[in-house]
């Protein structure tokens, strides 16, 4: 059975890019969310195997959403995918419980390698 992935990002283009990469490599994208709050809700409802999470999003940002998910589900596997790659943000992400931090831009290899490292 293929691993199920939840994508949380406010850019439809990033959803399309990730979907192309993931589905092309045998993963199932079980849902898309466009903000952190929706992401937390969908995580609780669908319990995906992997989450791709952006940081800067409306309503609830990615760091806050990771904290909400990890507080309840310590086993959650979360990959943060963001254009913000400075140490301060990376440190906040690590404290929130992010498993892998990836910087945009990305390509298929970067995405698939990251998944292989946590699953």
């Amino acid at each position: 059975m293929s691993k199920r992935v939840l994508i949380v990002d406010d850019s439809p283009m990033i959803h399309n890019m990730l979907r192309k990469t993931l589905e092309g490599n045998g993963y199932e994208v079980c849902a898309d969310a466009s903000n952190g709050r929706e992401g937390v809700h969908l995580y609780e409802k669908l319990q995906p195997d992997i989450v791709f999470m952006d940081i800067t999003m409306p309503i609830m940002d990615g760091i806050e959403a990771v904290k909400c998910i990890k507080d309840k589900y310590k086993e959650a596997k979360i990959i943060m995918l963001t254009a913000m790659g400075d140490e301060e943000i990376m440190s906040q992400a690590e404290e929130a419980g992010v498993d892998i931090f990836l910087k945009k831009p990305f390509n298929d290899f970067k995405i698939i390698s990251a998944i292989a490292n946590i699953v």
Binding site: S11, M13, T82, A83, G85, K104, P105
Partner: peptide
């Protein structure tokens, strides 16, 4: 998003 990535990489 493209502008966001350029700004992020330069940052």
């Amino acid at each position: 998003e493209f502008a966001n990535m350029v700004a992020g990489s330069a940052k």
